[in-house]
Amino acid sequence: MKEQEAKELEKLVAKAMKKSALETPSFQFTDKVMAAVNAQQQTSTINYTPLIPKYIWFSIVALVVGITVYLWYTLQPAPLDFQMPSFNFIKEETFSQEFKAFTPSKITSYAVMLLALMLCVQIPMLKQYVNNRKA
């Protein structure tokens, strides 16, 4: 009896499933899939290419070397006469002398202070902004 019931159930469901038609997706389904697949294909074929190719780097180097050599031989016929710079800063104190002579005006010092203050405010603000954007 149980077997008969199972058979009857199978018959009923088989019939019902036969009546339920297959669903069809939208008209452009294949086109959409193919567009996505083609996009996939293109991104996978894009290889890394440097912004400045090698031959331009070589020509830049050649140009710089060429100009240097040209200037060396044409514009400087006299032998080089290097004067060794003096490293005795304590004795000469030229820099510190000049520095002492420089006294900024009040407006300049206020402006520099304000700039420093603004910088101190901007650093944490920018840091927070960048952190939020990453998250």
């Binding site: 669903e23 389904f29 294949t30 899939v33």
Partner: peptide, 12 residues
């Protein structure tokens, strides 16, 4: 596209 057309109805 041939494979998509073949299986799209049943997959959907």
């Amino acid at each position: 596209a041939l494979l998509v057309d073949r299986y799209k109805d049943l997959v959907f």
